[in-house]
Design a protein around this nucleic acid. Structure first.
Lengths: 101, 101
DNA sequence: TCGTTATTTCGGAAAATCTAGATATGTTTG
DNA sequence: CAAACATATCTAGATTTTCCGAAATAACGA
């Protein structure tokens, strides 16, 4: 886990929002996708794009920077890529920030 | 407290180091300054500059970005500016990151 | 295979940030 | 008051970030 990269990723509001949305997909994304959330797949890029109000490429950039630092992970199913939070990294981060106190 | 600014500040290793040094000044700065630590003043820019191995202006910039987002606070005494951690903000940050889980 | 859909990667423009050096401001001392 | 000192601010160039559209890649279905 690269702490510096994680903080860089979190220094952007859009990316923090994405992380927040992914915490409770049911609250933030269309109900048609419920099966995917239940299957622990996560949320596909199109849905996140619509929610973020950005272009697809910008959204994809944000997602890949979140993924590179380990905050989220991707699962490819057919033509879709689903993203979900990587709770282990997030918990580790939380511990590290605790230790800054 | 501007979370985005805080994360941006923390995405720089030098600034994270500064925060770390200021946590235990005795461990990281000259002993002559002990009175200042004891007086809860913090550490002056010159000492931090030397420790960081940067130019004075670069150090000053880093410190002011840490200050702008509330992670440290400054006390001016005569010609010296002393910086110390703002434990309240750091605790708040810690709580916020906890809540990202 | 061809066309369609989903996503990623690339290239580039505008905006923001970083850093060092020069200059300015405020403080102490002689 | 002048000189020396500590720090802050300004300036400018280099780097980085953010975003978009276009092109590339991947998977699907007819």
């Amino acid at each position: 886990m690269e702490l510096k990269m994680i903080f860089k990723a979190l220094s952007n509001e859009t990316r923090v929002n994405m992380l927040h949305w992914l915490k409770q997909p049911r609250l933030h994304f269309p109900a048609e996708e419920l099966e995917d959330y239940d299957a622990h797949l996560g949320v596909c890029v199109s849905d996140i794009t619509e929610k973020a109000g950005l272009s697809l490429s910008a959204t994809s950039d944000h997602l890949s920077s979140l993924q590179k630092c380990g905050l989220i992970e991707a699962t490819r199913v057919g033509q879709w890529t689903y993203y979900k939070r990587n709770e282990a990294t997030i918990a580790q981060l939380s511990g590290l920030v605790q230790n800054m106190r």
